[in-house]
């Protein structure tokens, strides 16, 4: 079944069509969210929320305007940005409890991995330290395989702005790599 047929079925309340879409797109969405947020727990929450939004807003998807994967990544990206904003506000309110919890979760995630991948860990930390727009641009183009035009559409910026964000992200990461 094509994306359009699946989405039409989702609009009519067909849960098996919903499950087929989840099977098809979850991996890409979860990888993107993980790279954006850096921990499993929040990644899972974002993924659940993304597909819940797909179910609720299925009728709003316009196949002539964007591919389903582009639309889903736009939802996931908006949720990640909201999460990061909320998270930043929480920090300014000095609610350190959740921050400690998130950090702890992140540490657990890091320790779970092979310590031999030290360079990767440092690179991951450098990626997480990038501004959201640079990180998002890099993740969408490098990992998710979107073209610059598609990634710009997901981020709601011009292609030039996206390319500039990628350039800055790569420059920062190359500097980090040269220090490792």
């Amino acid at each position: 079944m094509t994306d359009e047929e699946l989405m039409r079925a989702v609009c009519n309340g067909d849960q098996s069509a919903y499950q087929a879409i989840v099977r098809q797109h979850l991996k890409s969405i979860s990888h993107y969210a993980y790279r954006m947020l850096g921990n499993k727990k929040d990644t899972e929450d974002i993924c659940q929320e993304t597909f819940l939004k797909l179910w609720v807003n299925a009728a709003k998807w316009q196949p002539e305007k964007a591919k389903l994967s582009t639309w889903l990544h736009t939802i996931a990206r908006n949720l990640c940005v909201d999460y990061l904003r909320r998270h930043a506000r929480t920090l300014t309110l000095a609610n350190l409890e959740s921050e400690t919890e998130a950090k702890l979760q992140h540490q657990v995630d890091l320790v779970e991995r092979d310590t031999a991948h030290d360079q990767s860990t440092q690179l991951e930390q450098a990626i997480l330290a990038l501004p959201e727009n640079q990180r998002s641009a890099l993740m969408l183009c490098h990992f998710s395989g979107f073209s610059n035009k598609e990634a710009a559409a997901i981020m709601n910026v011009s292609v030039k702005a996206l390319e500039s964000a990628i350039a800055r992200a790569k420059r920062t990461l190359r500097k980090t790599l040269s220090k490792i």
């Binding site: 993980y34 499993k40 990644t43 991995r113 360079q119 991951e124 490098h142 990461l173």
Partner: peptide
């Protein structure tokens, strides 16, 4: 290095 980054187990 980016391609070698570990993929999370979910």
């Amino acid at each position: 290095r980016l391609n070698q980054l570990p993929v999370p187990e979910l």
